[in-house]
Amino acid sequence: MVTFSNGYLVDNLADALKIRSEIDVTPYAGGTDLMVDAKEDAVYLFLNKIPELRRIYSDEQYLHIGAACTYTEIFENSLSPQILKDAIDYLAAPAIRNMGTAGGNICNASPKADTALIFYVADAKLRICNTSGERILPIEDFYVGRGKTVLQKDELLVEILVPKQGLEHYYYKKVGARQALAISRVAFAGIFTTENGIITRCAMAFGSVADTVLRFRDLEALFVGKSIAEAKSIRSQFIANYEQAIVPIRGRVSAEYRKSVCMNLLEDFLTQNGI
């Protein structure tokens, strides 16, 4: 461990968690959110040299992505699912992708976070640790509002667990002002799976419209267990439910615009799946 003025550099997770439990520090992964309005008195805990946070590996069920893996590392890893690579491909520019991390994207808790959107729709879980143990929670349980998470002062996000199966049939669109550097205005991700003509999954997540990424599992359930033809017959009801559920916030782009983009993307997703 190295102690600097205004910072701690550690090379293993145990030391990092010990510091988290004893000192009030700000975890620093890639710095691409933190350094934009860097505080002069910030005391950082540097995570970029902790091997446990930088690996990508898979077990039977999950792909484990270390919280401090950079976008470039995730993009270049052959284990990463294509839906995640697509989102990274449209995210910022090379220099930001070389430093920015998936864990930072999640913990910064912006509704615009492009990879958090993918983790939502993919049913990813977060492995969070402190010195006494770990807890694993679905990503949607991590957020309590814009910029607010359930992460405790003594905890670190260690890994993102992405299910290995079922992400092949996806849809991803980001509607932004410019491609590079465009923090998404509205982004949409969907996953659609059928088995023997029956819909087994119709997941959708919306970025940049509300205080957090939006996903409505109860509304998705309407299609599950139905044939494409049956789904088609209740398409307008399905859409109307979302029309009601999505309550956009006022941002730089008008609320109405954001919402109509959302609805267009949702409809396009359904159409592309034959509904």
């Binding site: 910072g7 691409t32 860097a38």
Partner: peptide, 29 residues
């Protein structure tokens, strides 16, 4: 100083980085 323009680019361990977005403690070694 916001990561937007790239004028501050350097190579950090061989990859492109915006030096305005890099805190000194992270570059030890």
């Amino acid at each position: 100083k916001e990561g937007e323009c790239g004028a501050c680019s350097v190579l950090l361990n061989g990859v492109l980085a915006n030096s305005c977005m890099v805190a000194m403690g992270s570059i030890e070694g």
